[in-house]
Amino acid sequence: MQIRVYKSDNSGVRLKDLLSEMFSDLKQSRDLAWRLTVRDFKGQYRQSLLGAFWAFITPLMSALVWIFLNASGAVKISDSGIPYPAYVLTGTLLWSILSESVMIPLKQTMGSKGIIGKINFPKEALLLSGLYKIGGNSLIKLCLMFAVIIIFGITPDFRIIFIPLVILGLIFFGFCAGLILTPLGMLYNDVGRLIPMGMQFLMYLSPVVYSASKNQGFLAKIVEWNPTSCLIVTAREYMTGLESSYNLYFTVLMIFTFIFLVFAWVFYRFSIPIIVERNG
């Protein structure tokens, strides 16, 4: 028989027990996570005419704006080795995967605020369901990117088989960042407003719509060392057969991402009762 003990402090809990509890909760939440995902997708598409189109309409539009700006000569963008429309389309689509990943943990948790305060279920289901949703949307976007590559006659090399892994890494990076901010965002809704703004700003600090300039100015350095640059550039390079420039950085970044992900997860679990307490 399952025994649960609720006490004020957790000082006695060992890390090993905590981790095994977390993973068992994660395992238990798969059914529910899948159910929630199906529910939300169905709910979303049943009352919509354009359906899955909405998954990529925003990045597509912003890409079109930049393609237009470039074509009209309003902005001059240095050559990147692939046709500009392909460059900007892959950029905005990859960026939309990243920014969606950053926002999803808070969005999922906020969306279930009412239930969290009333029913005890493994909260991992919310996170997992968020990942499923991102996965579904990313698959659509990935197909679109492949279409772009084919249309512009770009020939990728063998590294294209690693692209799902790279994109998974990008998703986890964004998810981890979002997850760390979620408890704070559940207390103060400023966070939920700041994240999209910050992501917009970060987009221009990463080579999404224009390629990194070769000069050595301060700003260029930031763009170069910005972790989101590493993610976008690596994914794009793997997809289009451009030479990899961030291999080591990317590996280190992934290691840190997974370490932080576990921390963020522990913090999230710990924060839920406090959030329920403050939000009713």
């Binding site: 025994i3 649960r4 003990v5 609720y6 006490k7 004020s8 005890n120 009762p273 329920v276 307490e277």
Partner: peptide, 18 residues
Amino acid sequence: GLIKPDEGSIEMRGRVGA
């Protein structure tokens, strides 16, 4: 188990339905 007690302890044995 939705919120934690500030003092004391609670022990629940078995499946909880609410």
